[in-house]
Design a binder for these strands. Sequence first.
DNA 1: TTGAAAGCGCTAACAC
DNA 2: GTGTTAGCGCTTTCAA
Lengths: 337, 337
Amino acid sequence: MSSQPSTARSAPTLEAVAELAGVSRSTVSRVVNGSPKVAPEVRTAVQRAIEELGYVPNHAARSLASRRSHSIALIIPEDTRRFFTDPYFADVVEGVASHLATTPYTLTLLVETESDAGRTTRYLQSGSVDGALIVSTHRADRSYDGVNVPVVFSGRPAVPHAGAIVVDIDNVAAGRMATEVLIRRGRRRIATIAGPQDMGAGQDRLNGWRAAIAAAGLEPGAVEFGDFTPVSGAAAVRRLLDAGADFDGLFVASAQMAHAALEVLAERGIAVPDAVSVTSVDNDRFAETAQPPLTTIEQPTKAHGAKIAEVLVGVIEGRPVERLTVLPTRLVERSSV
Amino acid sequence: MSSQPSTARSAPTLEAVAELAGVSRSTVSRVVNGSPKVAPEVRTAVQRAIEELGYVPNHAARSLASRRSHSIALIIPEDTRRFFTDPYFADVVEGVASHLATTPYTLTLLVETESDAGRTTRYLQSGSVDGALIVSTHRADRSYDGVNVPVVFSGRPAVPHAGAIVVDIDNVAAGRMATEVLIRRGRRRIATIAGPQDMGAGQDRLNGWRAAIAAAGLEPGAVEFGDFTPVSGAAAVRRLLDAGADFDGLFVASAQMAHAALEVLAERGIAVPDAVSVTSVDNDRFAETAQPPLTTIEQPTKAHGAKIAEVLVGVIEGRPVERLTVLPTRLVERSSV
DNA sequence: TTGAAAGCGCTAACAC
DNA sequence: GTGTTAGCGCTTTCAA
């Protein structure tokens, strides 16, 4: 377009800073990296030069030399629709992002693609990231084993993973507690809409339901399965109802499914809690205004996100970390029971 | 811990591949980068070597040498709560992520931090990313001007930005259309809950409302402002009502605010649409099941996300792109009018 | 406390 | 079509 020298001059390098400050490149590097072994006056001079030139270290050069990228990956399962639609994941990602904003690490979102199965693995091997976060693991996910960077799971993988580092809630207890409320309210025929059985959370919450029922000496009621989505929840209650299942209590394994279940019950003219008491897991932002307001197990979703990030950064930086962190939950009683 | 040689051997380099295949490093590089000028047999040999060693190119080295990171940033405004809570943004991010999954680019989420104002700018200058996406711009956002990488805005910035590349919907038309429905239904006293006036979308939708009213020869009704969130929407209707505003039509500038507004109207015993007709913008997933179902302007949110990604990649790769892309919207009529 | 020198693993002219 | 040769911009021993 023009034969004038471009005004978009290339970014100043560390060398330029060194020259301007009258020191060596090593010294500039030390200042940039906050090394204590630099004379105060020299440090000031270097900082002034950095300021003056608007110097910003080149990320690629830095990570090539130091072998750290200061970036971590969050692996998003193929089913992006579900991921981005569920407020649970939004909260987790918010927790992760907010925590990382207080660290020098940056968050990279990686969508798993069926079309290119090796993509995730290759990415994790390319040195682009110092570690990875796995959020919604199904049984089949294997992109991250045998990978050279540390990995932290949010929620235990359905298939035990040697040496996996996990942050989770006690899903068995969650299922149990949510079922026990029903029992305490005098419900005796307790059905459940369970989560997907290729996920740890799905398995555990179902086991919690079983345990509570067994402990109370009751007969297990009907079981239908969903995948934690509203649509699957609605379908599951319909199956329950259409099969003529007889229940006066219902434990639904996720809030998203529970909301849909409540709508279906209303449609069918089944009064909650008069005819059927309902409980669930996850005190999402719709639980309080649901009709009727939902009794549920609250889990610290955003804190969960922050925690997986914190643990991963700990591993990366060589600090000792817990291999299993269990976050607290609590029962929130409302009028659906 | 051990004096044994570590088993976590360092990743194979391009050089190792070259040796094993009996060619030079340049040739391996050419194969890896899909250069056509490599003899088929040689290519095969190299690929075999790559396979055998499980070679994955080092990202830092590659971007240091090539000056491209194959990664783009999505800037998230400081108010993460709002960002992660609004399904609109979830859809946009999904669109971006899904589109990028079909390209060699990777998505980095960057949360703006008030505590460290220069962080975003520095990041953008560090060569970490080849470009940036700005999604929810308020007037004050300036982290990205004077930055060396291309930037694409989703929604026009409130303050005109020389040379900005923008993907948007026609928000003036959206406001106008949504207001015109009310007029067609015989409404004559039309109030509005406008969006934030430090955002282009907020300004434009309000102007659309004004234009429709002027064109119909009506007097503008009351105006209250919100920030697109449900809470602000509820507060705005309350102010409208408490001030004794007399209206039989209400245009709400976002679906999130509209849902909250409908709840408040119901609480106050104001029948929709009998006493007041309501319209909005954004056909989110709650619009259809709202009470009553919401008449609204649908915008292609996910496609919007895909488009900003596509445009940015186009700019990065030097293809000619439109400086302004306007995405289509359409009116979805339901029973709230 | 500072500097010199040697890479980190790759790409990109340029020559052959 | 293939190899040689320089770097890309930084960190990091090692000496001084």
